[in-house]
Simulated scan of single mutants.
Amino acid sequence: MLRTATDGDVDIIRILRNQEPNREVSINSHEISADEHAGWWAKTRVDPTRRVLIYEREGVTAGVVNFFDLELDAEPRTGAWGFFLDTVGLAERGETLPAWIEVMKDATGYAFDELGLAELHGEVLEHNAVVRQMNRRFRFVEGAPETRSTEGREITVLPISLHKDNRRKPKGN
């Protein structure tokens, strides 16, 4: 289940984002400080081009979904997204794969059904083979790789996109 993040979620968002497995597959891999996070939240919570959602699994916070660069007044409507899970907690409970499938299903459903997007964009690091495979399962298409320098390292980033008409249809539709 996805719900809108509130001020009460700020600490858990930072804790989950700072988990080592999440930092390893993020473009910005440094540990986010409390001050940096507070500044991000202060801007994000009032930005009409952003949505931050909490992914809950059986009543427990299990991840965060970020939608950004939302073009809701444009035709076609577009936006970008990213997410991270409670990799540590889900692994301890043996729920990583079902949670991952569920959050992707819920997030793409939110993008197309709630936000009314025609196309959803994102990025994935080239070395993140597991995420790339899951993205293909959900019919995301990869674009041309781009090499970037960030935080003293070179990374290869692949743009991804999914058009509403190409998405996996929810069961029953």
Rank of each mutant, 00 (worst) to 15 (best):
Asn173Thr: 12
Arg139Met: 05
Glu126Ser: 12
Ser33Cys: 10
Pro21Arg: 05
His121Tyr: 15
Leu16Gln: 03
Val141His: 06
Asp113Cys: 03
Leu158His: 10
Leu90Met: 02
Ile101Tyr: 05
Leu125Gly: 09
Ser149Ala: 13
Glu126Leu: 14
Glu56Lys: 08
Leu117Arg: 03
Phe68Lys: 09
Gln133Gly: 08
Glu36Asn: 08
Val124Tyr: 04
Tyr55Met: 01
Gly82Cys: 07
Ile155Phe: 01
Pro21Leu: 04
Thr44Glu: 03
Asp86Gly: 10
Ala62Asn: 10
Arg50His: 11
Asp7Ile: 04
Gly122Pro: 05
Pro98Ile: 14
His30Asp: 14
Ile155Thr: 14
Ser149Thr: 15
Asn128Tyr: 05
Gly122Val: 08
Lys169Glu: 14
Glu114Phe: 00
Phe140His: 03
Leu158Pro: 07
Glu58Asp: 15
Arg45Leu: 10
Leu16Arg: 02
Arg153Ile: 11
Val103Gly: 03
Val46Arg: 14
Glu142Lys: 01
Gly143Tyr: 13
Arg57Asn: 12
Asp73Val: 06
Glu92Ile: 01
Trp41Lys: 10
Val131Trp: 13
Ala5Ile: 07
Glu56Pro: 00
Asn18Phe: 09
Arg77Asn: 02
Val65Lys: 09
Ile160Glu: 01
Gly116Ile: 10
Ile32His: 06
Asn173Glu: 14
Thr147Met: 11
